[in-house]
């Protein structure tokens, strides 16, 4: 069981993590806005996450912590 933790307020909403996810289970939140004013990245299906860390590797802002 993989677990992602987001430092949501560091997210700039660039979406590089969304594109990197092999399971297509990341999105830029359509309704949330963080302190920086961006739509932050979020997981749509926690159970489907395989903890591959592709999202974290492509994140320029160290937003995502990955545990497995």
């Amino acid at each position: 069981m993989a677990k992602l933790t987001f430092k949501t307020d560091n997210c700039k909403g660039c979406g590089l993590c969304v594109d990197a996810c092999p399971k297509n289970i990341l999105q830029l939140s359509p309704d949330k806005i963080n302190k920086k004013g961006h739509h932050p990245a979020e997981l749509t299906d926690e159970a489907a996450c395989i903890g591959c860390a592709s999202c974290a590797i492509m994140c320029p802002d160290c937003v995502i912590k990955v545990e497995r």
């Binding site: 307020d9 560091n10 700039k12 961006h38 320029p60």
Partner: peptide
Amino acid sequence: MSMHYCPGCTHGI
């Protein structure tokens, strides 16, 4: 610290 780079800038990586 949160870096000043633009969204999606690869400097952060």
